[in-house]
Design a protein around this nucleic acid. Sequence first.
DNA 1: AGACTGACGATCC
DNA 2: GGGATCGCCAGTC
Length: 101
Amino acid sequence: MATLNENLVYEVLSVVDEIPEGKVASYGQIAKLIGRDKNARLVGRILSQAEYYGTYPCHRVVNYAGRTASHWAEQESLLESEGVTFKKRNYVDMRKHRWCE
DNA sequence: AGACTGACGATCC
DNA sequence: GGGATCGCCAGTC
């Protein structure tokens, strides 16, 4: 397995858990919140293992363009269930749903 | 230690 | 926003 720094994992999951329903945050945004704006990829890696650390709304995290996880099929439907709309297939309408603190 | 990879970002077009 | 390209950092081989 990935054996990520648990300290980093908890910081990320803590932020993800604060994302309100119907909103989405980008990996970079989360990365910046934990003080690692260049480590967006780490956020994604952590989310891929989030289940191992607990249950979090990792489906509310998309990339900067509003695109859903490249390898994740059901994320789209999960977001729609919360009221998130899509501009196009797999593309969230960031303009309306981007999570701003 | 070195090279490759990735649930990404920013810039350019 | 969308495709192409380069850059970042940590993890994996």
